[in-house]
């Protein structure tokens, strides 16, 4: 239950500085909070509200719109099994039943050891490799009962720790715009004329 750490506040400020309006950083900052704590805490939302100049109710309003944000602790690994058409045509329902049995939880539940949360998901953009699933948003394609079991066994044995970061971390690479390389934000109140390169001459 935490506000953002000092290091994350620094990161948050760097992210905010890339937008003409601080509020645009709301979703990236919610990801940052979820990366920090595994889910989005109330304290973090109140903190983010202050950072982006919104009310906590607005932050919660935005956050709760998006499915990736969790407001209660979830497993270290969240497994999302796709159930939309292409996957359904390839047997996703059977896979879901198998997964529930294998993990001993219903969709939306977390295993007793707190390691895995199982969820039903909608289309994950891997429709030709159906049925597919994501573990913390990393893909497994053409999943069978056997390959699902292997995945779970590997997760339990810690064999995928390097490949799959704990829930909350999506991309492990962040964008950094070096101070001397950035073109800068262009806020509506600051820019009143056409960019210089639109002067009818070639730039190079």
């Amino acid at each position: 239950m935490a506000r953002l750490t000092e290091e994350n506040v620094r990161l948050a400020q760097e992210i905010i500085s890339r937008y003409p309006r601080p509020r645009s950083a709301m979703i990236p900052l919610l990801h940052l909070a979820q990366e920090q704590d595994g889910y989005v805490t109330e304290d973090a939302m109140a903190h983010i509200a202050g950072l982006v100049g919104a009310s906590p109710a607005e932050v919660y309003g935005t956050a709760s719109f998006y499915e990736m944000f969790k407001f209660h602790p979830v497993g270290r690994y969240v497994i999302n099994i796709c159930g939309t058409m292409s996957c359904a045509l390839a047997g996703a329902e059977d896979l879901m039943h198998h997964a529930e049995e294998k993990l001993g939880v219903r969709m939306g539940g977390t295993t007793d050891d707190g390691l895995i949360t199982l969820e039903r998901a909608e289309c994950q953009a891997a429709c030709t490799e159906a049925p597919c699933l994501q573990t913390n948003y990393r893909y497994s394609f053409r999943v069978t009962a056997e390959s699902f079991d292997t995945l779970v066994d590997d997760l339990r044995a810690g064999r995928l720790a390097d490949e799959i970061p704990p829930h909350g971390t999506v991309a492990r690479v962040r964008q950094h715009i070096p101070a001397d390389k950035g073109a800068g934000v262009h806020a509506p109140e600051d820019v009143k004329s056409a960019p210089a390169w639109l002067d009818g001459k070639a730039a190079l």
Partner: peptide, 10 residues
């Protein structure tokens, strides 16, 4: 100017 209520969920 008191956005203390908001739509939540979806």
């Amino acid at each position: 100017g008191d956005p203390l209520i908001s739509f939540t969920q979806r």
